[in-house]
Design a protein around this nucleic acid. Structure first.
Lengths: 240, 240
DNA sequence: CGTAGTCTTGAACTGCATCAACCAATGTGG
DNA sequence: CCACATTGGTTGATGCAGTTCAAGACTACG
């Protein structure tokens, strides 16, 4: 059987259960696949989209990972999120018909292009798809608010512990080891996300290592005492 | 004609153009009004909803203003936003079927209750309503990312200037004076939103006053040199 | 094998927090 | 109507977490 180049095949996609609602019928998945434009490969360091580009599509990450960032006139950078396989990119573009941030690949990656008008149309017919879209957007709002809490109230150690546990959880959800993983991003980028300078990130990693909480070898991380990390986070974590 | 108590009347609502899409037909507004549950009054200091309450509805503010906040186990508070007439509350509840934050009235207020399942259903029929909902959620995401930038990268003066200009803009959009207004929130709450302590907020207000940027009398604010405030913000504002 | 990017570590600095006193406005009860 | 308490805001003195500046180590890649 000849493979159709760039043809989307959701049923065999490894992150299906992350980016699609449960219980779609075979037919509905078919419809969705017709709506989804194509796959697109992005090399490490390249931009999937740039702030102020005209918005037309959401992107579902099939493979790889990204950061989203805001850049300021005077050259500061705020990383607003790290996205991995199964995550959805571009929801910040819907409101103003332009993307609000840059999306940059942290490694060679591949996304499914989901033209938004077609998604809206299809979600008018398929209720579960509509709900799924709403849930995805709402979760993004909740995540962002969590970051506000982190940036507004936490100290450096609490921020990094929160970050590590959140990564761990996301790897677990994707079937990878939650206790040993490789960071896709630099200290600089972690710092930007957490509102810290890269030196501070490095120092806190060192402190965690000395206390036996983690093994750190460059970007390879092993969580050695997850309970202790969790204790660090507990007091300052949202009650919810 | 006997007024139906708590009956919603969108056509005569002063914030109609903020919370409804343009160009709804009379019929469609009728449908929406039937879907919208009722009005609800919230006294100053009371909670409209609490984090972890079961989610069932969005709330459109008719009158008054609110703050949303996250509370932590050890008693810290992060204000995640201030909402005023025409704004939508509760979108953080969709994803997990529970509200993620508390919504507290800053003054005696009134909201329209919009049961979410009915809104979803109606938005499947009325395309413009569907798009409007998506835009509202997306704008919330963009706003939250802007706050991340503020918390992660800006200094105290830049944060407060950003805050004042944003308030000014929102008052303007509602037909109030953009240069003279009364703050609905305390220094404490402003500080929590901006990631600062109340003393710092107070000090920066004083500095702005000394520099002739604003008049401050308790909660009464008058912007005297908007251009200067804007200059403070420009360098660090998102390029977008 | 050399050069550039990334990471670590140290020393000194600083912006905001903390602690504390005081003031103004508002409310309360006698 | 006035003493008094309460709440919210201002201002000063001091401290410290995280930044800044700087140097060196490690890694990767052409």
């Amino acid at each position: 059987m000849a493979a159709i180049p760039n043809r989307v095949d959701c049923n065999s996609c490894s992150v299906r259960e992350l980016c699609l609602p449960h219980g779609l019928s075979f037919d509905e998945v078919e419809q969705l696949e017709r709506a989804v434009g194509a796959r697109r490969r992005i090399k490490r360091g390249q931009e999937l989209y740039h702030a102020r580009d005209a918005f037309s599509a959401l992107y579902a990450i099939r493979l790889g990972s990204f950061k989203t960032r805001l850049s300021t006139a005077d050259g500061r950078e705020q990383v607003t999120g790290f996205q991995m396989a199964g995550d959805l990119l571009g929801m910040d573009g819907i409101g103003a018909a332009r993307y609000a941030s840059d999306a940059v690949a942290l490694e060679d990656s591949e996304v499914c292009v989901v033209p938004f008008d077609q998604l809206e149309e299809l979600s008018r017919e398929v209720g579960s798809l509509q709900s799924h879209l709403h849930r995805m957007m709402s979760r993004e709002i909740v995540r962002d608010q969590g970051v506000m809490l982190l940036l507004g109230n936490m100290r450096a150690e609490e921020r990094l512990a929160t970050f590590l546990l959140s990564l761990s959880e996301r790897f677990r959800a994707r079937g990878f080891s939650p206790s040993a993983f490789v960071l896709r991003m630099s200290r600089q980028e972690i710092g930007s996300y957490l509102g810290l300078k890269l030196e501070t990130v490095s120092r806190v990693f060192s402190r965690f290592r000395e206390q036996g909480l983690v093994d750190v070898d460059q970007r390879e991380i092993r969580l050695r005492d997850e309970a202790a990390l969790r204790r660090l986070v507990e007091a300052c974590a949202g009650v919810a």
